[in-house]
């Protein structure tokens, strides 16, 4: 009879964390920021059909980085969770907090219970009446949740980008302030969406490439004048 090797739990967790973290670090970062117009979500993404940003519910949006098949399944699960809650109770009863908690449960259970942790990092954002009421949640591969206000970056190089943006962004930024600093002058190959503040029902709207280019270039002209 063979005796299974003893692996101390600290080492097991560390191995799994390192594995998942390196998977997440390969993903291009997604920037989520509170602006006067609402919440902007933006990321570099050459594909027009494989999305990293999505609508979840009326005032709630999703962003995922890491392994596409894994965060895509979680995105759809989040939409189902939100729609089921809204159907069983009321539209007003669906909150980013409850969606984030469901994601945390799921990721946490997989992290300890499955052979391979999920190589993803997720963000759930809910737009409020005013920027101060916006809520961001970051859910990590191990199921840990953090609530963040103002600015959240997930994915590879998140810390550096957060530090840079915190320094460069004015207080109470506008949509174009964020876009021009994240996207740069080009505007092609990016995926961007806004949760519009004060929208009657579904607040999520994608920015088309031309809208994105217009926002960035109008800003540059103003800046140079």
């Amino acid at each position: 009879m063979s005796i299974p090797y003893y692996v101390p739990p600290e080492l097991l967790i560390k191995d799994r964390s390192d594995f998942a973290r390196s998977g997440v670090a390969k993903g291009k970062p997604v920037v989520i920021a509170s602006v006067r117009e609402g919440i902007v979500l933006v990321t570099e993404n050459p594909s027009a059909s494989l999305r990293k940003i999505s609508e979840i519910y009326d005032r709630i949006a999703f962003a995922g980085v890491g392994r596409y098949n894994e965060f895509e399944a979680l995105r759809v699960a989040g939409i189902r969770y939100a729609d089921l809650r809204g159907y069983a109770y009321d539209r007003a009863d669906v909150t980013a907090r409850s969606v984030a908690a469901a994601y945390a449960q799921t990721l946490g259970a997989v992290f300890t219970g499955e052979p391979k942790p999920l190589e993803v990092e997720l963000a759930v954002a809910e737009v409020g009446e005013r920027p101060a009421e916006d809520q961001f949640f970051r859910i990590s591969f191990d199921g840990s949740v953090a609530q963040i206000t103002g600015l959240l970056v997930i994915g590879g190089g998140a810390e550096d980008l957060t530090a840079r943006l915190r320094e460069e962004l004015p207080t109470a930024p506008r949509l174009s302030d964020v876009l021009v600093r994240v996207v740069g002058k080009d505007g092609g190959g990016w995926e961007a969406a806004v949760l519009r503040r004060g929208a009657e029902r579904r607040a999520f709207a994608r920015l088309s490439e031309s809208e994105l280019k217009a926002a960035v270039s109008s800003r540059r002209r103003k800046g140079s004048a």
Binding site: A73, L74, V76, A77, G78, R80, Y81, L84, R85, A88, A101, A102, Y103, Q105, T106, G108, A109
Partner: peptide
């Protein structure tokens, strides 16, 4: 009604729209 805190498993992860 699937509204417990049991995480998103089973039908939540099945294919279909």
């Amino acid at each position: 009604g699937g509204l417990g805190e049991a995480g998103l498993t089973g039908a939540y992860l099945a294919p279909g729209s």
